[in-house]
Computed example of a mutant assay.
Amino acid sequence: MTEPDAAPSFTLGYVPGVTPGKWVRIWQERTPGVPLELVQVGAAEAAGRVRDRELDAVLLRLPTDRTGLHAIPLYTETTVVVVPKDHVVTAADEVHTGDLADELVLHPLDDTLGWARPPGRPALDRPATTADAIQLVAAGVGVLVVPQSLARLHHRRDLTYRPVADAPQSQVALSWLEDETTDLVEQFIGIVRGRTVNSTRGRPPAAKQSKSKRPAADERKPAPRRNQPRGGRRGKPRRR
């Protein structure tokens, strides 16, 4: 975050699977004088890093503890089950949680789906991370239900995935401190919400200038006088 008397900058955190590249490019085009630093953070620590003022804002997944934070939901992800390529569920284009009732379903500690009760049979131990769970799936130890972007992030040639129609879904949101909606935060909000560069709320702080007003009537240039006098025409006087 920007320190007092320091050149302005913007620090944006993002959780694994979220791809902020498009928004960063727009920021660089619109606000070239303010560098944007990207910081990848774990899902479990994302909100806390904003509360500790280590980040100006963060792209995280809901549900999360939103105490003291604003959060704007941006989009909802499809939930999928990750399985080996020869798994029986690959015969269908889409599955339901009931289809996983007999499966060992891994539930990593960094899970972001907020299950009331995960489907299937629980494992004896919960993997520490989604990456660890992916390794177990590849080893033939259970299946994993995650947002689709995480399945893509941890893609392996020996694994595939299918959508789970009735599973909870994860929302990606932009979050920042409730009492610190700065001009730079407003600028980034405008970008992720698709505001154009001409939008007043979407402009960089330096560009938020009022339009020039027309000069008052007494400030306008006087109209030029006509060369021809009223009621006659110019020329030499007639001889008597």
Rank of each mutant, 00 (worst) to 15 (best):
D179S: 07
Q187D: 06
A173N: 03
V137H: 05
G235Y: 12
L144W: 05
D132N: 01
L100D: 00
G33F: 10
A133L: 09
L136W: 15
A165R: 12
E180C: 09
G232A: 11
V146F: 06
P163T: 10
Q171S: 14
P16V: 12
L144R: 06
Q187G: 10
Y75C: 00
V82F: 06
A7L: 14
A101N: 04
P32C: 12
P168H: 14
R66N: 01
T11A: 09
R226C: 02
K213E: 04
K211T: 01
R51E: 04
S149Q: 03
T182H: 05
K211S: 02
T97P: 01
L136Q: 15
A46G: 08
A206Y: 06
Y75D: 01
G33Y: 08
V15I: 08
Q28G: 08
D5A: 15
P168N: 13
G140I: 13
A139C: 10
A165N: 03
P229G: 08
A44Y: 00
E180N: 14
E178Q: 10
A151M: 01
A151Q: 01
Y75I: 00
P163Q: 09
T97S: 02
T200H: 12
A7W: 11
D125S: 03
T2H: 07
Q28H: 09
P4R: 14
T129M: 08
R126H: 11
V83E: 05
T90I: 08
A151F: 01
T182G: 05
T97V: 02
D5N: 15
Q135M: 06
P35Q: 05
T31V: 13
Y14K: 09
E37G: 08
P204C: 08
L59I: 01
R53P: 01
L69W: 02
E94H: 09
T64C: 09
R195M: 14
V34R: 11
T181H: 09
P73I: 00
Q135F: 03
T78E: 13
V50T: 05
I134K: 02
G120E: 05
A133W: 08
V164A: 08
P118T: 06
T112M: 08
V197T: 13
G21C: 07
G21I: 11
L177E: 07
E54D: 13
R117C: 07
W23N: 09
D158S: 15
A139N: 14
V88Q: 15
P108C: 08
V146K: 06
V82C: 06
V81G: 08
L100N: 01
E45D: 04
R233H: 12
T97Q: 04
T112C: 10
G190T: 07
R156Y: 01
D56G: 12
M1T: 15
R238W: 14
P84M: 15
A43Y: 10
G194P: 09
V34H: 10
R238P: 13
N198V: 07
D65A: 00
T76Y: 05
L124G: 05
N198R: 10
L113D: 03
V34E: 12
R66M: 00
S212V: 04
